[in-house]
Computed example of a mutant assay.
Amino acid sequence: MHHNPIYVALDLPRLDAAEALARKVKDHVGGIKLGLEFFCAHGHHGVHELAKVGLPIFLDLKLHDIPNTVAAAMQAIHVLQPSIVTIHAAGGRAMMEDAKAAAGENTKVVAVTVLTSLDDDDLTSIGVSANAHDQALRLADLAHSAGLDGIVCSGHEVGAIKKQWKDGFFVVPGLRLPDGSLGDQKRSVSPRMARDAGASVLVIGRPITRAEDPLAAARAIEGTL
């Protein structure tokens, strides 16, 4: 069976609703992505409940703190056996190295480069002179040299970063279907375009979770890959 790169982002505040949706689409996605909102609301218990669905769990926590704190947080989620955990590349090399060292051996640690909600003006306002594309490439290089498994980036950067980092693991969020609404994403590509450009994992939320028929939506997206 081919590996399904789609991780469904369960952006639902209620645990029972999230679990019901995961069970509904589980044969047409490759994993479940749980973000900060879910983790703050439901903690370890919620992750354990969703793990019962039988799919890999991606904990999108975007850890960003001093190296000791991030390493301790990584150790605290060992028991959940996540397949992927995110940290912020902007936390620097030592933080990234310590996060990777503290992670479980079956957990991929990937660094967020530039959030897809930020544009060049936003970067300027926080003192970053590079544009979003160049900043993403710079942070990808740093994550690579720090020994991480890969990065999170938009579909626009993944091709360029893959040229520099041949065997990297690339998570691409903010994907939208060709006929779908963009929502709050400023820079978006289709799942197929991202896959062809080198994405390892495609994070898809609203196009599945807010669809009238989530199962049909998941099946349709899977069919485009």
Score class of each variant (00 low, 15 high):
224 T>R: 04
135 Q>A: 13
58 F>C: 12
215 L>A: 14
119 D>R: 08
137 L>N: 11
221 I>Y: 06
133 H>Q: 09
167 D>R: 11
56 P>M: 12
115 L>F: 13
53 V>E: 13
156 H>S: 05
39 F>I: 00
102 A>C: 10
169 F>E: 04
101 A>C: 03
194 A>C: 06
131 N>G: 15
126 I>A: 04
111 A>L: 03
203 V>P: 01
130 A>L: 14
158 V>Y: 06
188 S>H: 01
47 V>G: 04
118 L>Y: 13
179 D>T: 05
3 H>K: 15
152 V>K: 08
20 A>D: 15
93 R>W: 01
209 T>D: 11
183 G>A: 07
100 K>C: 09
221 I>E: 03
188 S>N: 00
63 L>I: 02
100 K>L: 06
23 R>M: 12
10 L>R: 10
164 Q>V: 07
173 P>S: 05
148 L>M: 06
96 M>E: 00
178 P>N: 04
52 K>C: 10
37 E>Y: 00
154 S>H: 06
217 A>P: 05
193 M>H: 07
91 G>I: 07
94 A>S: 11
21 L>R: 06
105 E>D: 14
179 D>P: 00
32 I>E: 10
136 A>G: 07
132 A>M: 09
100 K>Q: 13
119 D>K: 11
97 E>T: 12
78 H>Q: 11
165 W>E: 06
22 A>D: 07
174 G>H: 03
178 P>D: 02
222 E>L: 14
77 I>H: 00
138 R>W: 05
195 R>K: 13
7 Y>Q: 05
94 A>E: 15
156 H>V: 09
211 A>I: 06
139 L>I: 04
121 D>R: 11
180 G>Q: 09
75 Q>E: 14
176 R>P: 04
72 A>S: 13
220 A>F: 05
106 N>V: 01
132 A>N: 02
21 L>N: 06
164 Q>M: 10
58 F>L: 11
94 A>V: 12
46 G>H: 06
70 V>W: 00
41 A>E: 03
50 L>F: 10
1 M>T: 14
29 V>L: 15
167 D>K: 15
145 S>M: 02
17 A>H: 09
189 V>C: 02
135 Q>D: 01
28 H>N: 14
178 P>K: 10
96 M>V: 02
11 D>G: 09
204 I>T: 07
96 M>H: 01
55 L>N: 13
119 D>C: 13
91 G>A: 09
190 S>W: 00
207 P>M: 06
176 R>Q: 05
73 A>E: 02
143 A>Y: 05
20 A>H: 12
177 L>N: 05
168 G>H: 09
